[in-house]
C-alpha cells in the first residue's frame, strides 16, 4: 500500500512546543528583574512580618520579616547552580563511562561499569544522600557530591546502548577501514550520532537534580547556609496554615516554571530526534 509510505508525520503531541522556550525565557527575565531591583539583603530580619506586596517588598515578607523576593532570587540562583553542577558532572561522568562500557561491550571494562551501575541503582537515593552528607559533613557540597555519584547511571546505560547500536553500523567499519583509531572513532563518529540521546538525558538529570534539591532541603538535608526553594517551601508550610501564601507561591511557581519549561524543551527535543518519527 503506497498510502502508508506517504503518511504525513503526526502532529507534535504537545500543544505549544514553543511554550517551553517561552516559559524558560520568562523565568530568566523574572530572575534578571529580581537581580536589578533594589531588594533588601535576603538574610536581613525586620520587624515587618508577613508584609503584603509593596514597593519595598515586591513579594512581601515572611514570618521573620525577611524579603521574599530577595530570598526567592537567591534561592533560584542556588537551585540553578546545583542543577548545572550536578548535570555537568554526573552527565559527563555517565557519558564517559557509557562510551567506555559500550565500546568494550562484553569485556571486563564493560562488566565492571555495569556492575557499578547496578550497585549504585540498588542504593535508595535519599538515604544515600543522607549518609554521604554525614560522612562528608565537613564539605559544603556534600549534597551535590551525592547527586553526582548517583545520577550518572541512567546516562551510562543509555549511552552504552547507543554505542552498541552504532558500533554495528557500516560507517564505523568504514572509519576503521580508513585507519581511524578507536578514540577518534568514538569522538568524531559515535559521539555526534549519540548526541540527541545524550542531550535529552542531560536535561533529565537537570530536572532530577532540581527536584531532589528541593526535597532534600525541605527535609533539612540540604545546605543550610543558604536559602533554597525547598527551604522556602519548608518555611511556608507553617505560614500557609496561618493564611500567608506569598512565600509558598513565590518558591513553588519559580520551581514549576523551571521544571515545566525544561520538560517541554526536552520533550520536543525527544520527539524531533525519535527514530520512529523518521527524522535523524
Amino acid at each position: 500500500m503506497s498510502s502508508s509510505l506517504n503518511q504525513t508525520k503526526p502532529a507534535d503531541p504537545i500543544f505549544f512546543p514553543q511554550l517551553g522556550v517561552l516559559v524558560f525565557f520568562g523565568l530568566i527575565v523574572v530572575l534578571i528583574i529580581m537581580a536589578v531591583y533594589p531588594l533588601p539583603d535576603w538574610q536581613v530580619i525586620s520587624p515587618d512580618r508577613f508584609a503584603g506586596i509593596s514597593q519595598e517588598h515586591p513579594l512581601g515578607t515572611n514570618a521573620l520579616g525577611q524579603d521574599i523576593a530577595a530570598r526567592a532570587a537567591q534561592a533560584s540562583w542556588h537551585s540553578l547552580r546545583i542543577g548545572f553542577i550536578v548535570t555537568i558532572c554526573a552527565g559527563f561522568l555517565g557519558m564517559l563511562l557509557g562510551l567506555v562500557s559500550g565500546w568494550y561491550a562484553g569485556r571486563w571494562p564493560d562488566a565492571t561499569i555495569l556492575w557499578l551501575t547496578g550497585v549504585m541503582e540498588a542504593i535508595p537515593f535519599y538515604l544515600f544522600v543522607a549518609a554521604v552528607a554525614y560522612a562528608f559533613r565537613q564539605l559544603s557540597w556534600s549534597m551535590e557530591l551525592a547527586m553526582v555519584v548517583t545520577f550518572w547511571t541512567t546516562m551510562t546505560r543509555l549511552v552504552r546502548a547507543e554505542v552498541i547500536r552504532l558500533k554495528q553500523r557500516d560507517f564505523i567499519l568504514a572509519a576503521r577501514a580508513i585507519g581511524l583509531s578507536p578514540a577518534k572513532t568514538l569522538t568524531s563518529h559515535i559521539l555526534p550520532n549519540a548526541l540527541p540521546v545524550i542531550l535529552v538525558q542531560f536535561s533529565m538529570i537537570f530536572i532530577a537534580a532540581i527536584k531532589a534539591e528541593v526535597i532534600l532541603s525541605f527535609l533539612g538535608l540540604g545546605n543550610s547556609s543558604t536559602i533554597s526553594w525547598g527551604l522556602m517551601i519548608s518555611e511556608s508550610t507553617q505560614e500557609v496554615i496561618a493564611g500567608h501564601y506569598l512565600n509558598f507561591f513565590s518558591a513553588s511557581i519559580l520551581l514549576f516554571m523551571l521544571i515545566y519549561s525544561v520538560s517541554l524543551i526536552t520533550d520536543s527535543l525527544q520527539t524531533r530526534t525519535d527514530p520512529r518519527q523518521g527524522v535523524a
Binding site: D170, F171, A174, A175, A177, G179, N193
Partner: peptide, 21 residues
C-alpha cells in the same frame, strides 16, 4: 592503521557506510 591509506573498501550500501552527521 597507517597502512590503511593504501588499501581501501567500498561498501554495498553507501548510505549506511557514510556517517549521517
Amino acid at each position: 592503521r597507517n597502512q590503511r591509506q593504501h588499501m581501501q573498501l567500498i561498501f554495498q550500501n553507501p548510505l549506511a557506510a557514510l556517517d549521517p552527521r
